[in-house]
């Protein structure tokens, strides 16, 4: 997000406190509280979208107990869907959510039911390789069909926004935050209030018991995969106006999403959301203090630090 670059320069009129800060013998630039705060806020916006990608991943992990390597390429595919809906049909990327989210669900459902479930015979190590294979196929197909060019959806309002005093929040950022929170809330309601959601939670922990109350486990697996894919489709729609898409686009987000899932606790929704915000804020502050490229190491640093003290992640449950 360009927020980092924008806030890296101390706002005019706000005085930096002190000249230099020293940390572990490294001289750090010093910024005013307002700048730091503004940077943290853009971290919240960024973290919200990370959380959305992580949410789908953690759901699939929680139920199927598999690491879905195809998650990133599904995000990329959904980004291209949003892009072409805009380019060819003139559909606004946010409106496109109404198409790509149900589409993502069906695609994920079919993928699990027809390919992953069929080929894996219920063995976790095979599932892992199948998702990796799917990722490779999707990426290379995208490379072949769309070439490696970067493409960006342009919306007329991408620079409009609200002045929050310490930072300027553009509408795409606000939409990403609002959309992520709304989708997390809907997902939580779905998982706790509906029979299908409860069945998903039941299958996650006790497959035999689930089958004995008449739950079709294959169907529930596919629904979970479908919802996970719908989550990345929603994320794609929220990201499209800010990030240019290209066939390798998924890596960036999915690597961070994996970090968030482990950090928050495998299979935990709250963990994914909180973890997303932690990583988003850390990343933005890291960029502010250490620069664009070095700043990213703060993600790994906080990741290792949290796991040192809580090996199961922030909201993870101890393995029974």
């Amino acid at each position: 997000m360009d927020g980092a670059a924008a806030t890296a320069v101390p706002s005019a009129g706000l005085l930096p406190f002190g000249d230099k800060m020293e940390f572990l013998g490294i001289d750090l630039p010093s910024y005013s509280w307002a700048t730091v705060f503004g940077s943290a806020i853009s971290g919240v916006f960024l973290g919200a979208v990370y959380a959305l990608v992580a949410l789908g991943l953690t759901l699939i992990y929680g139920v199927l107990h598999i690491i879905n390597f195809a998650h990133g390429s599904l995000l990329m595919l959904a980004m291209f869907a949003v892009y072409f809906l805009w380019k060819l049909l003139g559909i606004d990327p946010y409106v496109a959510m109404l198409i790509v989210v149900p589409g993502g669900f069906l695609f994920g459902y079919g993928l699990q039911r027809l390919i992953i479930g069929q080929s894996s015979h219920g063995r976790d190590e095979i599932i892992l390789l199948v998702t990796l294979g799917i990722a490779i196929v999707i990426e290379n197909a995208a490379l072949f069909a769309f070439s490696a060019d970067e493409r960006l959806v342009q919306v007329p309002y991408d620079m409009d926004g609200i002045d929050l005093g310490v930072t300027y929040a553009v509408y795409p950022e606000l939409a990403a935050l609002g959309g992520s929170l709304l989708i997390t809330l809907l997902l939580w309601l779905f998982m706790t209030r509906t029979d299908t959601g409860k069945a998903i939670r039941a299958v996650a922990k006790e497959r035999r018991g689930a089958r004995l109350v008449g739950i079709n486990v294959d169907h529930i697996f596919a629904i979970s995969f479908g919802i996970g894919t719908a989550c990345v489709a929603a994320a794609a729609s929220l990201l499209a106006a800010t990030y240019p898409v290209h066939p390798q686009f998924g890596y960036l987000f999915v690597l961070i999403a994996f970090t968030i899932v482990v950090l928050g606790g495998m299979g935990s929704f709250v963990g994914a959301l909180v973890g997303g915000f932690i990583i988003g804020i850390t990343e933005q502050l890291g960029r502010l203090y250490l620069g664009e490229s070095l700043g990213l190491i703060t993600i790994s640093a906080i990741f290792i630090l949290i796991l040192l003290f809580r090996p199961t992640g922030l909201f993870g449950q101890r393995v029974r």
Binding site: D195, K198, A199, R201, A202, A204, E206, G209, V213, I215
Partner: peptide, 16 residues
């Protein structure tokens, strides 16, 4: 279902 409340366990009895 260990991760669910007693009530939810019972409700799932009426799933099918």
């Amino acid at each position: 279902f260990p991760n669910m409340t007693v009530r939810e366990n019972l409700e799932l009895g009426g799933y099918r």
